Amino acid sequence: MLENLRFEVHEATTQLVENGLVDYFRGNISAFDPRRGLVVIKPRGIDYGKLTPESYLVVSARTGQVVEGLGMPATGIDAHLTLYRDLPDIRSIVGTHSKYATMWAQAGRRIPCLGVAHADFFQGEIPITAPNSDGIDESSYYERVGEQIVNHYERTKEDPSLVPAILVDRLGPVTWGASPMDAARNAVYVELLAELAYGTLVLNPTREPLRDGDIQRHFTIMRKRGVIPSNRIRGRQIEKR
């Protein structure tokens, strides 16, 4: 079932490993088939070096129950299902604990857009969720993470397709896209831009972000050149649980 999507998820996982964004058991990736209402996701507790396309689980997007495959879904499954339900443009999600992006998340800081390298791919700063004031509950933590992300976009009215990434306060980066490879590439970009921003502010702590107008103009140039897709895939929302 969903053999092609499993292969795509595995190929994207390979990119995450090769770029050093995930290691051993840490990190997760999934993809959503809205027509069937099913999600392909990395299994929990399996070393990345042992994964094959057949290793990935197929779960119900509505209930989170395993439909096909052996094992349990990655620990972030509840967050992923919340995002697929409430941010319907998303088709794939990646969560990592990459070094520099996680430093920004632990510091509780957004990643500012300090140069055109950032504006090449993201129209503005990479946001961060509000702190989790309820503390950490083992049974509902990742569901709460998903709610924090959704609440950010409901509160700010920002478009999650323009900056397909967010930092979860004290946790790390989450990225998404129209395909597993798209989401994985965005994870790579976030880590690169996090490192560039960190180094820039070490060298020049007073450096100001690019002006909004310049960011939008450069972003438009990249779209016209085909670097950034000009069309968005809009899907249906899955039934709320």
Score class of each variant (00 low, 15 high):
Tyr189Arg: 09
Ala184Val: 10
Thr175Met: 00
Lys157Leu: 09
Gly146Trp: 06
Ala184Phe: 15
Tyr153Gly: 00
Glu154Gln: 15
Glu125Gly: 07
Arg144Phe: 10
His152Gly: 03
Asp182Val: 06
Tyr153Trp: 14
Ser161His: 09
Ser133Ala: 12
Met181Phe: 03
Gly172Tyr: 01
Thr129Asn: 00
Val150Trp: 08
Pro164Asn: 08
Ala178Arg: 13
Ser133Tyr: 12
Gly172Ser: 03
Leu167Val: 02
Asp182Met: 09
Val174Trp: 14
Glu158Tyr: 14
Thr175Gln: 04
Gln148Tyr: 13
Leu171Val: 14
Tyr189Thr: 09
Ala187Ser: 12
Gly146Met: 01
Gly135Thr: 04
Leu167Asp: 10
Tyr141Ile: 14
Arg185Gly: 04
Arg170Tyr: 09
Leu171Glu: 15
Pro127Leu: 13
Tyr141Glu: 14
Gly135Lys: 04
Ile149Phe: 01
Gly135Ala: 06
Ser140Gly: 13
Asp137Ala: 11
Ala183Tyr: 06
Asn151Phe: 06
Glu154Asn: 03
Pro164Trp: 12
Ile126Glu: 07
Thr156Trp: 02
Ser161Ala: 13
Leu167Glu: 11
Asp169Phe: 12
Ser179Gly: 02
Arg170Ile: 07
Glu125Ile: 00
Met181Pro: 01
Gln148Asp: 14
Asp134Cys: 03
Leu162Gly: 04
Ile136Val: 15
Ala183Pro: 06
Trp176Phe: 12
Tyr189Lys: 02
Ala130His: 13
Tyr189Cys: 02
Asp159Asn: 15
Ala187Glu: 02
His152Arg: 07
Ala165Gly: 10
Gln148Thr: 07
Asp182Arg: 05
Ala187Thr: 01
His152Met: 06
Ser139Lys: 15
Glu154Thr: 08
Ile126Phe: 04
Ile136Lys: 00
Ala178Leu: 13
Pro127Lys: 11
Tyr189Trp: 10
Ile149Leu: 00
Leu167Thr: 04
Arg155Val: 01
Ala184Ile: 02
His152Ala: 04
Glu125Arg: 06
Ala165Ser: 15
Asn151Val: 05
Lys157Gln: 10
Glu158Gly: 03
Leu162Thr: 15
Asn151Lys: 08
Tyr141Ser: 02
Glu125His: 09
Arg155Asn: 08
Ala183Leu: 02
Gly146Ala: 08
Val168Gln: 11
Ser139Gly: 13
Gly172Cys: 11
Gly172Met: 08
Arg155Phe: 00
Pro173Phe: 05
Asp134Ala: 09
Glu138Gln: 08
Pro180Thr: 03
Leu171Ile: 12
Ala130Gln: 12
Thr129Glu: 09
Thr175Asn: 06
Arg144Leu: 07
Ala165Lys: 05
Arg155Glu: 08
Val163Gln: 03
Pro160Tyr: 12
Pro160Ala: 05
Leu167Phe: 13
Val188Lys: 00
Leu171His: 15
Asn132Gln: 08
Thr129Ala: 02
Tyr153Val: 01
Thr156Arg: 01
Ser179Lys: 03
Asn186Val: 03
Gly177His: 05
Pro180Cys: 13
Trp176Gly: 02
Ile136His: 10
Val188Tyr: 05
Tyr141Val: 14
Tyr189Ser: 01
Arg185Ile: 14
Ile128Cys: 00
Ile126His: 02
Ala187Asp: 07
Ala130Gly: 08
Asp159Cys: 07
Arg185Met: 14
Pro160Ser: 06
